[in-house]
Design a protein around this nucleic acid. Structure first.
Lengths: 231, 231
DNA sequence: CGCGGCTTTGATGTTCATCAAGTAAAGTGG
DNA sequence: CCACTTTACTTGATGAACATCAAAGCCGCG
């Protein structure tokens, strides 16, 4: 096709096949003009709590955290979002301003699409609307399940859970570098920094994991799974 | 109009104006045939965890609880849903089976619409799709905010929060009958039954509330608000 | 009328947050 | 590049908050 190169890079982006599966190349073209990619270095803020919502943002590459600044410097991490996760998915259709912040915890590239264009597409393309509903449903569901899971566990169980999460859901291997500080782990699973450290040390002494700074290796996965389930 | 009476009762239902605002009478008619209302006495189960999802359910009148059966008889209440809340809204588009249960905590009437019909409508009516997205977004958002709010509070703060919630959000008055047991309050805000009772008693002794069985009256609202915020 | 679930209070113990103090690591300005 | 400052990490000691256990009264329901 002659105009292929002109449409936009979305066409070959893996993201497209995941979300924009039912969107034709023509339709894609209409809002790809307004689309832009933006790179954020680890630590940089992608979205600031209170910012007006005018765009639809998703992670193309990297890792970000969504968090709530509750005052007195106390932060709560709502979730960690991976590639193809939609940062704005939870508020974007009901609010005018973000009520959480997003920052990169690894070098990250996000795609930014004008929200009005997305809404137009929803109006015009029913299959896309359904895909978006499904996606949103899944996102909310996972989040709720996560909260419930964590709330039932004691501190050892929570640390076990989060370590397994990194190993099995994010990095897909048993040795990885933690993308977050001990303090951030604490904010993610609702405990204090000191206890995160203490329990990681306990696990190390018990031979369940090996620690070298940010580097973690899981040595006894069955034990970790047991702790995650039964504590 | 001649066919008015034949369309279906949805036409005059207050729910319609809230969600089906952008749905024409004709469109409404196409799936109103499959719609049914069902009454549940207080205590009855509306949806059972594990049930296949084939319908879209919302509360027309009454009050229900969404809860998770985590095993060992331990239940976690996810939320309490009021009229016009969509029970299925969180999972219905991404899952084939419910992973929570729903039961009536007051006499309740729900409306049940075939899910496929809803999906058809989403495909055909873009404005309806957007309304649904907004609705879902709002539901998920409120839920997340709720979790975060509660997690930051100590037990006294949680009880204060939940009492204010009943007074200001659900019953819109300072004297009301609790629709839930002490045990259920505990399951809702993550604490033990004994401590719910203990703290309610403390509040009573401190003159903040009056208790008579299930009946609660808030006597010192500013104090309760202070506790909810600062504890 | 008796049984099971809900409610209440008290006593006890565990878990966890807080405080304190020190080391290591990472940024910052001269 | 090095002194300096700040931020992250670590460990121990202490106390408070909270769960658990136990016992008894209450209420509704079959």
């Amino acid at each position: 096709m002659v105009t292929e190169g002109k449409v936009c890079e979305c066409k070959d982006c893996i993201v497209r096949s995941l979300i924009f599966e039912h969107v034709s190349s023509e339709e894609l073209g209409t809002f790809c003009n307004t689309k832009r990619e933006q790179f954020f270095k680890k630590g940089q803020i992608v979205v600031k709590q209170g910012d007006p919502i005018s765009d639809f943002v998703y992670v193309k590459d990297g890792l970000v955290k969504l968090y709530n600044e509750a005052g007195q410097g106390r932060e709560q991490i709502i979730s960690i979002a991976r590639p193809y996760d939609f940062i704005s998915l939870l508020t974007v259709f009901s609010e005018t301003h973000y009520h959480y912040s997003v920052s990169a915890i690894e070098d990250t590239t996000v795609c930014i699409i004008n929200l009005e264009k997305i809404k137009e597409l929803v109006r015009e393309n029913g299959s896309f609307a359904l895909d978006l509903l499904e996606r949103m449903s899944r996102t909310a569901d996972k989040l709720i399940k996560n909260y419930n899971d964590i709330n039932l566990k004691n501190l050892r169980g929570r640390i076990a859970y989060i370590l397994l999460n990194f190993a099995d859901k994010i990095y897909l291997r048993n040795r990885f570098d933690l993308p977050v500080s001990r303090k951030e782990i604490a904010e993610l699973i609702g405990m204090t920094t000191e206890n995160v450290i203490r329990i990681l040390s306990e696990f190390r002494k018990e031979g369940i994991i090996r620690i070298n700074g940010k580097e973690i290796e899981i040595l006894d996965k069955p034990k970790l799974e047991f702790l995650s389930q039964h504590a």
